[in-house]
Design a protein around this nucleic acid. Structure first.
Length: 204
DNA sequence: CACCAGGTTGACC
DNA sequence: GGTCAACATGGT
């Protein structure tokens, strides 16, 4: 089964997801850190708390008292390291600015993000795709699991290469496809259960 | 009570 | 190169 066939089947089954739920690019960045190993529902509450305190801004977030930030995001778990990571990435965005970052090549940007402590491949690619509109395909735990069910093997790099080489470099498509994979994973292919019957088996 | 959630890191082999 | 515990709260 081709990648586009999988996409079309997911789209038809689940409908459009229209990710990422955020009002601004920087809110995507914040969400990308907070959602690490955490349910989005808890992340949404934390982001609302930050918004109420006028902290959804690189300058404000990088200069806020750390213990106060920790208490505001406690519900997302790993709150001490996430507070640290948020301030690290906030300083980076405060220094550079969204519009100037958007002009940089994706590869350069990706390496800069990966050099920040607390930003690994998935978080970096989520920021590139959903905050800066770069055509990078995001691979997450659900995507790996679903691909395995479909007979598509590989870790992060290999799977990313497979998606990116098989699809047109369309930011909107990349965004929607990843969102669909996560939604499908949550419903049908997670640690608790995996209904392999909904999607047809694919060749590697 | 046990297990998991839209990961990353550093230690170890 | 790969594997593993630590990080921590909230929901089933």
């Amino acid at each position: 089964m081709k990648m586009m066939d999988i996409y079309n089947k997911l789209l038809k089954t689940l409908g459009e997801q229209k990710w990422w739920p955020a009002k601004t690019p920087f809110e995507v960045v914040v969400g990308a850190i907070l959602t690490q190993r955490t349910k989005w529902e808890n992340v949404a509450k934390a982001i609302h708390e930050l918004e109420k305190n006028d902290l959804l801004d690189p300058d404000a977030l990088s200069s806020v008292d750390k213990s106060r930030l920790e208490s505001l995001i406690k519900g997302t778990g790993f709150y001490r390291q996430k507070a640290e990571r948020l301030q690290t990435v906030s300083k980076y965005f405060a220094k550079n600015g969204i519009s100037s970052l958007t002009k940089k090549p994706a590869g350069v940007l990706r390496n800069e993000l990966l050099s920040l402590k607390g930003i690994g491949k998935e978080t970096a690619d989520s920021i590139l795709l959903y905050a800066l509109d770069k055509p990078k395909f995001v691979i997450d735990a659900y995507t790996v699991r679903i691909c395995k069910c479909l007979g598509i093997s590989g870790g992060y790099d290999r799977l990313q290469e497979k998606f990116e080489s098989a699809l047109p470099k369309d930011v909107t498509l990349f965004k929607e496809f990843h969102a669909l994979l996560v939604e499908y994973g949550k419903r049908y292919c997670n640690k608790n259960r995996c209904d392999k019957c909904i999607l047809l088996p694919a060749k590697d």
